[in-house]
Simulated scan of single mutants.
Amino acid sequence: MIKIYDRKTKTYEEENIAGKKFIEWTYESPLGKGVTELIAKRKIFSKLYGVFCDTKLSTKKIPEFVENFDIDMAIAQKKISDFTSFNDFFIRTLIPSSRPIVSDENILVSPGDGRITIYDDINLNNIIQIKGLTYSLSELIKDDKIAKNYENGVCVILRLCPTDYHRFHFIDSGIPSETFKINGHYYSVNPIALNSIPKLFCENKREWSILKSDNFGDILTIEVGATCVGSIIQTYSPDKKVNKGDEKGYFKFGGSTTILFFQKNKIKIDDDILAQSKKGYECKVLLGEKIGTKAHERK
């Protein structure tokens, strides 16, 4: 059972996991682990499933998925009958009023919907993946020079479930760099898998870039693929000015993760998120929701 902290109600709730029994089998049973290593973690498995999710036939999955996970379609820009495939539904856009972006330049917001964990004063060689398992930033991005800029900074991990809005956005205005791509496997990013696969984020396919932001320094942004995520699609233009809240890209079907690294003394994270992260709980957040402030604005 995975418990998530609801910031609004200040209570914990159990996460309704898509494919829970399959994930538990593949990452916790001896036979399932074997299948994962032989098949599920490999590109061909996710690619083939991604091809199916791009077909008209896959639209039959949409109504049941919406019902099982109580997805609010009133905030989507398309009706269920208008989607041309399951992936078309999965990367659905929302009406702007459903995800208001806090415009105050001193406010740090979430880059998307998901479950957030944050660590401050990080050790670059021992960044926490989950209790007992760590990784290094150099391993994650394969660039020692860039990694050194984030010593004792802040790491923000936003885990997206298959049920979430799957587009990710810029959290501040600024100039984004080109995207650097690193090939890898396609392990699930669910906590069940994170607890089983050492350095999972460093094993999976991932892409990274730097946003030279106007208010929070140079933000290292990493998108991590996962099982059935056939593609990470970047929709922004490198080296061109972006505004806070602009779309950066999206993930096709599957759970996935966005990781942000901030330099030392650039931001202050909200106390409730830090407290829950230290207890080992993720906090549920939405795109544009306040998660912190500029360091000098904190009182």
Rank of each mutant, 00 (worst) to 15 (best):
G230R: 12
Y236M: 04
G249R: 09
D272A: 00
I232D: 06
D164I: 00
L124V: 09
P162R: 01
D239R: 14
D172N: 03
G132P: 14
L140T: 09
N149R: 15
V109R: 02
K205G: 15
G230W: 08
L94S: 13
T179M: 04
N215T: 15
H166N: 14
L200S: 12
R115W: 10
T117C: 01
N243C: 06
F89Q: 05
S231G: 08
P100D: 07
N16Y: 09
S173C: 08
I91Q: 10
N125Q: 13
I101R: 08
K41D: 14
F86M: 01
N123E: 14
T134A: 04
L38M: 13
S196H: 10
H169Y: 07
D120K: 13
I91H: 14
N16W: 02
I80V: 06
Y250I: 10
I197K: 07
G288Y: 03
I141D: 10
L274P: 01
K241N: 14
I267N: 04
S173D: 08
N243T: 11
F168G: 03
Y27F: 01
G50R: 00
T11Q: 11
G245N: 05
G288S: 10
I75C: 03
E105W: 09
K145D: 13
Q234N: 12
N195T: 07
N215E: 03
K61L: 15
I146E: 07
T93Q: 13
S188A: 04
F89H: 04
N149E: 15
K41P: 01
S209M: 10
S256I: 06
R99T: 11
G217Y: 03
K294S: 11
D271F: 04
I62Q: 07
I39S: 00
L160N: 09
K60D: 11
D104I: 05
V242Y: 01
I23H: 02
I107S: 07
K278M: 04
Y135W: 02
I75E: 02
E15M: 02
G225Y: 07
V154R: 06
E24Y: 04
L48Q: 14
L200I: 10
I118K: 00
F168D: 08
G114H: 02
D88T: 11
K145P: 02
Y5W: 09
S136E: 09
F180P: 08
E67Y: 05
F180D: 09
I80L: 06
L133I: 11
V109P: 12
I118F: 03
V154I: 12
N68Q: 08
G153Y: 03
T257R: 05
P96W: 05
R206H: 07
R115I: 03
Q276C: 09
N68L: 02
D271T: 15
I62S: 08
D239N: 15
P191S: 05
R167M: 07
D113W: 03
E13I: 12
H296D: 15
R206G: 03
S188K: 05
I127R: 00
R298N: 14
C155V: 15
D246S: 04
S138F: 04
F22R: 14
G112N: 06
I107Q: 08
